[in-house]
Amino acid sequence: MATLKELAQQGEKFLSGHRACAGCGATIVARQVLLAARYPVVVGAATGCLEVVSTIFPYSAWKTPYIHSAFENVAATMAGVEAAYNALKRKGKITKEMRFIAFGGDGGTYDIGLQALSGMLERRHRVLYICYNNEAYMNTGIQRSSATPYGAHTTTSPAGTVIPGKLQPRKNLTEIVIAHEPAYAAQATIGYWNDLVTKVRKALDAEGPSFINIFSPCRLGWAYPPEKTVAITRLAVETCIWPLYEYEKGKYRITVKPKEKKPIEEFLKFQGRFAHLFKLKDQTPIKEFQSEVDRIWERLQKRCAE
């Protein structure tokens, strides 16, 4: 367990002065992940909000080595960095212990970067891949991704008079990653900072590829007041929309169990992206969303009991 005092004494590696929106979840993810790292780290980022707001030349928010090359390939780019480290360490040109962290948004991870991520996991590169998951392409102006939940309004899954937002449920990327048998995988979110920090530390100590899918609200794309960012992540966990769990050595474990499982409306009602669902005469979409959440939550509990 990390303490706030301990984290406060750790030097910041993701600095203020970047250009993220007020209430941005992604930058809180970057800060918490880097505070958790007890090793020197080399960071890579996929094209996306985090990259754009943190590295506008000549300013960089990263007080640790950082590379961005393209959108779909942060896993491959960091696999290359790790390969170079292994080679140069073997040749005695590098002696320091260090770790490698890739940051990608859900677009860069669930969609366009899925192949590179799969390759990185299968080749067992010792890289921690962090997906800061804000459930849509926010950098280009809120377009649907395969992480966008059922019913959500985005500019490419708009809530129209006939179609009520996105018609398909989210892809379950964490399970796709787990199918690769990584050294460590987890879901986390910034509202549970201690859980997140613990998971990052476990992932960085795991001998092999690791992945953490971090639920990361976007106040612009989700349409809520910026001060609600942390509260929304707590509601996501309490409604089981975003279960906090980990996968380690073949075992599933729920790391934060909600005291009482709240109905998903508690989570949906704060966000403009779901506002249209409440105006519908027919409440089937919300019911379908709820049954999808229930089904996945029950399946997860079964897996944890195995």
Binding site: I67, E72, A75, G80, A84, A87, K91, A116
Partner: peptide
């Protein structure tokens, strides 16, 4: 050879890995 060999899952990833490795100071 003492090379770290990355059998990538596509050419796009192969060159991406080369870029990461070269930026890390390796001969690639």
């Amino acid at each position: 050879v003492t090379t770290e060999y990355v059998p990538a899952e596509s050419e796009h990833s192969a060159l991406s890995a080369c870029i990461g490795a070269a930026a890390a100071g390796a001969r690639v």
